[in-house]
Write a protein that binds this DNA or RNA. Sequence first.
DNA 1: GTCCGGATCTTT
DNA 2: AAGATCCGGACA
Length: 208
Amino acid sequence: MGSRAFKPEDWLDKQVAANYFAKPTLEVARTLLGKLILFRPELEKPFSAFRIVETEAYFGEDPASHSYRGITPRTEVMFGEPGRAYVYFIYGMYEMLNFVTEPEGKAGAVLIRACEPVFGVQSRLNGPGKLTRALGITRKHNRERLTGPYFYVIDDGFRVGRVLESPRVGISKGQESFWRFMIEGHPDVSPAKENKLARRMKNQVKIK
DNA sequence: GTCCGGATCTTT
DNA sequence: AAGATCCGGACA
């Protein structure tokens, strides 16, 4: 492939379909691994490109999910059209990037926890807060579509090999089985201690 | 290695 | 009052 900047036009045929996100959150969280995100913080700025290596699934009435109390001003987007960004602010300093999943009316989102820099990114993206800070993703990108003009999600055929699935720990009863997905052994997965737990549990799954 | 606190805003 | 975080410092 050429050497120039990443342009969405070069990848139009490999964009994921808009209805890709209208699926069960666990499935989207799993299959997002290895996909590329193209992003620009402003329309007049260039795109950077980065590959998803770690995700987390939140949906329905699980107490771990923002959606479990029903629709509020903040969480409304989780119940809305799939294929949009849900960006929220936490701990007074971090923006979190999520992709809205499930058919409209059903709440779900995938937290993008870590990515591998591919083009135009200097720093590491090995944590959800570091990722948004490095890329300039903020709440002003809330509700933006993942099919442009700020975000594009691309399947370039990359094969991820082994995937580690882990249940989140420390969440109250009623949680569904698996939550976090990461490419095994990838240097850019986040260093959270839950990941170490996950490794011990050996919930390893092969992804096509 | 593990544990703890501080940064400091949004939501309920 | 707690939180879908991160970093640096203390201690072992």
